[in-house]
Amino acid sequence: MCHQTVSLIARHLEENGIPTLCLGSALDILRAGRPPRAAFVDYPLGHSAGRPFDTQDQLAVLTAALEAFEAITAPGDLVVLPNRWPENDWALAAQSEETGDTRQPRDESPQWQFPEDRQAAMASGAWSA
């Protein structure tokens, strides 16, 4: 869903004069949305900006994405980044019913990461119960 969202927003920004590059890891949804410029990294969802605790890989992904930003000259082009995830079984795990996408209930209450975040938001005035 996030990849659809970035495609829609990229089109809006570009129509209003801001060049964009979408970086993502869901190839088919990026292709369907045809944003003006896209870079695909073949990583598990949730890691579009690099492997966790791997500063070198994070720099490599972002550098390659920014190079694609400048290199793409045809609207709708998508560049596949060369970065590889070290374990090769993640794609199977992602498609498993047990370990794959498990959506949360959909209502309008803020979903704080920590209960303490709610107190912090109330203290700052960003939220009132």
């Binding site: 869903m1 690099g50 966790p52 959909r106």
Partner: peptide, 27 residues
């Protein structure tokens, strides 16, 4: 940095190292 997203299962690593999804320090 905190995260709340309907597919929370994809946030496990982001909540340990935000840079894998939000490249603030990288940029």
């Amino acid at each position: 940095l905190r995260f709340s997203h309907i597919t929370e299962n994809y946030l496990v690593d982001a909540r340990r190292d935000p840079a894998c999804i939000l490249p603030l320090g990288t940029l």
